[in-house]
Write a protein that binds this DNA or RNA. Structure first.
Lengths: 109, 109
DNA sequence: ATTGATTTGTCTATATTTGTCCAATATACT
DNA sequence: AGTATATTGGACAAATATAGACAAATCAAT
């Protein structure tokens, strides 16, 4: 089930919207995550990337679905990684085959 | 046009096969790339990742198609990045949408 | 057993990423 | 206008990840 509206939102925007919806200041959310508020500001504006662990915390503190936020996060990272490659979608399709293949191999061990 | 036979081969294997086909020793190919032969050995066995620049050199020194080798390299990297995620293929599909979206946005500027 | 090829393990250098601090700017209120 | 509060920008420091170098160990062939 894909959701184009959510999917095109960047992780930072999702976080900022949810934070503002709750009426929290940067420093409040930053304290919850135990990071500098300047860093949070940058994450929300997409100037810096969050870590995987931070994404988990964001989800639990902001009542966002962990899996959904992580999906956005990981796919966003990959998108930036290959957006400059002319054959980006080929790369992704081959990657998908490779994942499947790697998993089959893994099971054998 | 996908090629399941090639696609499931790891970059290291492709390189090793081509090197052996040419009858070159590790030290020969390593010298061409100006890297330690121990490092090349690791790359061929998949213990280490090559850099993007090295992939280009491999292609030109070994008469491999640059685009094709780079496709394998990049997709392999992505596959390893997410193979542990249960929803890997969702991630890749969303990433594909995001790439498209990012490109459209970029054009506007 | 010796030689040549490859692999393993470890250690260092370098690059990249992540985080903090503080100053600058923006926003809102009187 | 001035002041208080919130956010952002930029320089730096700390932490982590990656790449490379080297020596020693293993393997393969004769």
């Amino acid at each position: 089930m894909s959701n184009i509206l959510i999917d095109m939102k960047q992780v930072g925007e999702i976080i900022r919207e949810k934070r503002e919806e709750k009426g929290w200041l940067l420093r409040h959310l930053a304290a919850e995550l135990d990071i500098d508020q300047a860093l949070l500001s940058k994450i929300e504006r997409g100037e810096r990337k969050a870590t995987k662990e931070q994404i988990q915390k964001f989800a639990s503190v902001l009542n966002l679905k962990k899996d959904e936020l992580m999906l956005q996060y990981l796919s966003e990272n990959i998108a930036y990684e290959i957006v400059e490659e002319k054959n980006a979608s080929d790369i992704l399709h081959v990657a998908e085959d490779k994942v499947e293949y790697l998993r089959k191999q893994d099971k054998r061990k």
